[in-house]
Design a protein around this nucleic acid. Structure first.
Lengths: 339, 339
DNA sequence: AGCTTCTGACGAACCGGTTCGACGCCGAGG
DNA sequence: CCTCGGCGTCGAACCGGTTCGTCAGAAGCT
């Protein structure tokens, strides 16, 4: 079922079949029809592997996970789905590269063995060795999130700084004066995970600007850690009346912790943050939050990467997303002090 | 940076380099060392594409989504992650095939263009055209879930019938006599999605066996639908005191609906079901549920598929998982009737 | 009619590996 | 001393496409 077989049955040469298929040279209508008939009859599809070898591109994009992560958040997983769909829309497949274990071995394989035409990197750190590696190797890539020096790379990111700032302002306008910030896990923060750092910056800046007292906490990416974080927050400052979080996995635990400490949302305590709308609407009361759109990020990432493959020398483009904060039921006026 | 370059620099033929790399023929220690030195110096990695073309296998597994689904559940997404990690552990990559649009075009491409050595099919229906197609084509595959005639295929599945049965028995032993079942969406059920059907069977059988009154409901895969389902359940039979669900995406809505109708969990109403432990622990009170393990399913699927690739004629193996029901805080004794 | 130009098809080389058959060399056995 | 066998290496063919150079024949021009 290879091209030679088609050529033989159609009574033409292999190259003629190839040209008929690609349209890169003109073929007489009769010949083309004869070839097409044979192709239809045998249900022939050219081998992707052979095509990749000779043409030099695989029509596949690589999606790279960080070495350390073995636990995926919903946001990441949604992003994967949307990336695959977006890529399929352009006729590209997506190859998942898990870099487990030592260093960036998985990435090296992807690049050095030339399995993909370009790569999408997730879970970017402010100082990311993978970005340096790909830049030096001249391998086309797009990052989800920015490094500390984002000028020369192509990326798609959420504007965490601005979004967390919006949340703080929202709370400040409601009269809250002592606000906690529940960040991602200590491990991720220590590793330099960019969204954790930019979120914190946004929190600190906004608190200062609004003249409110802010206290930032790290919190593991699970419900139990969220519950624990509430304990720490209220122990440190019982007068806290609101929190902002970027840790959607801990959200359920945060609510539970508040209930356990007798704080009713949103009467006694307001909660807001950044989350997938799926999570924001799953909790009771529903979360007032900036709804991140994994689908939008996936589409943008694919578009950026294909642009790069088509025109490698075009100046780098970036996409910075800042979805509006959806008002739901988890925030309200600050309780009157002294009550 | 190809094999010819290595051969030239090491002063040997290309085939010698190939044999040194694969170890399929003996090479003298000196020659081997010389070749290795050149390889190390140039950081040479053989092209995956060329290797695939000549060797006939791609060292890649395909992961196939159903055409209709554009919205992923957490369980599916977790499964993807674990599949990728499991495959990586065996040196395989995973290619994601989104079959958007018409029929099984995406699947055809995967198979006909020979992009992958074998495929994993998700979201299996009782009567699944993709399974028939792959079977006829003689293409190696493993399904997540079973079709209606599972004898001759290889699959990994949860024992939904048994698990839902366990949940019903648990409730019956607590004294509940009127139990509702919240299934997946009508669309999925109509499409013949196997877990929805097998769950229902398990529910009906167990109710009959336990002599309790069971009422089954379909429910969209989101929080709002869950809230709505509670309304329907209590309207149809206000005396209902417990529910079993396999719809984890609706879980938050179910809780909210119960609260809205003045039912306190677990005092007035017990909730149980099948869910990722991530979701089960995210709600308040935490859900008594059979914790599904996406990681275990991913690993099992890869193992089954690699077994099949290694020994195509071995009799088909299956893996049926039935995790125990974890007792948490969402179930309790039935409220005394008349109260 | 003679010359150029254009069209449509062919053959061969190439992409970068793997694998088979052959062959030279060296040591062991008769 | 000659033969046989095994080891180590080479050359060539092959996997299934793409693409370049070439060329025969038809069409266009003077």
């Amino acid at each position: 079922m290879n091209i030679g077989e088609i050529a033989r049955r159609a009574g033409v040469s292999r190259s003629t079949v190839s040209y008929a298929l690609s349209g890169k040279r003109s073929i007489s209508p009769e010949t083309r029809a004869r070839i097409q008939a044979v192709i239809d009859e045998l249900d022939y599809q050219p081998s992707a592997t052979a095509r990749a070898l000779s043409s030099g591109h695989t029509h596949t994009l690589g999606l790279v996970f960080p070495p350390a992560s073995s636990h995926y958040t919903d946001m990441q997983l949604d992003f994967i789905g949307s990336l695959v769909e977006a890529a399929a829309g352009f006729g590209y497949d997506v190859l998942m590269a898990a870099s487990i274990g030592d260093g960036d071995k998985g990435l090296r394989r992807l690049v050095a063995e030339r399995r993909v035409d370009g790569a999408v990197l997730m879970e970017i750190r402010l100082d990311d060795a993978r970005v340096d590696y790909l830049s030096e190797a001249g391998f086309p890539f797009v990052t989800i999130g920015r490094t500390g020096r984002p000028e020369h790379t192509r990326w798609v990111d959420m504007d965490y700084t601005a979004l967390v700032g919006s949340c703080v302002r929202h709370l400040a306008h409601l009269g809250h004066r002592r606000i906690a910030f529940v960040n991602r896990s200590e491990r991720l923060f220590r590793a330099g995970y960019e969204s954790a750092h930019r979120s914190l910056t946004g929190f600190e800046n906004a608190c200062e600007q609004q003249g409110v007292v802010g206290a930032a906490y790290l919190c593991g990416d699970d419900a139990a850690s969220g519950e624990d974080a509430i304990g720490r927050i209220l122990a440190a400052d019982p007068a806290t009346t609101a929190l902002v979080t970027v840790n959607e996995a801990a959200l359920g635990g945060l609510y539970r912790g508040l209930a356990a400490h007798g704080r009713e949302v949103p009467l006694d305590f307001s909660v807001t943050g950044i989350a997938l709308s799926r999570w924001a609407t799953a909790v009771t009361p529903q979360l007032t939050a900036a709804d991140v759109s994994a689908a939008e990020m996936g589409r943008a990432a694919v578009e950026l990467l294909l642009e790069l493959l088509a025109t490698p020398d075009a100046p780098p483009r970036h996409v910075l997303l800042a979805p509006p904060v959806s008002l739901r039921a988890s925030t309200g006026p600050a309780p009157e002090s002294g009550n």
